[in-house]
């Protein structure tokens, strides 16, 4: 039996398939303007990728901000349970999950069976979310996926004191004007985001082993900043971005 999970995030749409309780395939595209179209496309492409037909998929669970728009899903579930389930599926020892998404960042505490024990999400503001990093990358004229490389070259990270993304951006602009090294500013941005995430992790009393999921997990400097802040080991798998979709597929198999 094949099950599918579709995760429509604010930036990217992800699909995952599982067969006989094993990961069968994944796919990522950008969401664009129309989340429903993105859902259809990512699902179609993942099926094409491993050459199976839609009718062979027994059940679909959708998640992410656009979850409700995926009208062909059998059920919608939140990113929290999907990321928790996905993380447990990939590594059953995991107790802590940190997910930095486009609009939301979250810390999830799992029990030994992979059930959600507690979770905390960012408050209404964008501080500590993927959007924060995007805004800063834009202000510094750096591609989002290069942020980590820049941060790794810093010698003395700048101190960003504003919490608010808008104020932090003007703070960064004044640092640019004061000719701070771009690498240092970027490292400061990572530390600032890590400080926000650390609050969420503390709220749920996160336990090790901790893994990081979501698109931002590809950024090694972010993981390093989080490790430093939380004082614990944090790893990220190759499929961190697809983790929510994987969890959704696992949950589809339990429907």
């Amino acid at each position: 039996m094949i099950y599918a999970g579709i995760d429509i995030g604010s930036n990217t749409a992800k699909a995952a398939l599982i067969k006989n309780n094993k990961l069968f395939g994944t796919h990522v595209i950008s969401t664009g303007y129309n989340p429903l179209k993105a859902g259809i496309k990512v699902f179609k492409e993942v099926l094409e990728k491993i050459d199976i037909l839609k009718r062979n998929v027994t059940a679909i669970v959708s998640t992410g901000y656009g979850r409700a728009t995926v009208d062909f899903a059998d059920k919608t579930m939140t990113e929290i349970i999907c990321h928790g389930t996905g993380a447990h599926f990939m590594n059953s020892k995991v107790r802590g999950v940190i997910d930095i998404g486009g609009q939301d960042s979250k810390a999830i505490l799992l029990d030994k069976n992979g059930n959600i024990e507690n979770f905390a999400m960012n408050d209404k503001c964008a501080a500590g979310t993927g959007r924060f990093l995007e805004v800063m990358a834009h202000a510094l004229e750096v591609n989002l996926d290069q942020l980590g490389d820049f941060a790794n070259k810093a010698d003395s990270p700048s101190k960003i004191s504003s919490i608010c993304t808008v104020f932090a951006e003007s703070e960064v602009i004044s640092m640019i004007a004061a000719q701070h090294k771009r690498e240092n500013i970027i490292a400061g941005i990572h530390e600032s985001a890590a400080a926000r995430i650390a609050i969420l992790a503390a709220k749920v009393k996160i336990k090790e082993p901790v893994i990081m999921t979501g698109g931002v997990a590809k950024n090694k400097a972010m993981i390093a900043a989080l490790k430093k802040r939380l004082g614990c080991e944090i790893t990220a798998g190759k499929l961190s971005q697809e983790n929510g979709a994987i969890g959704a597929a696992v949950l589809a198999s339990r429907l």
């Binding site: 901000y65 939140t78 959600i116």
Partner: peptide
Amino acid sequence: SQVETRIDAFMEI
């Protein structure tokens, strides 16, 4: 949408 996600996740727990 933020509140909705939080309530949905809470109810899932």
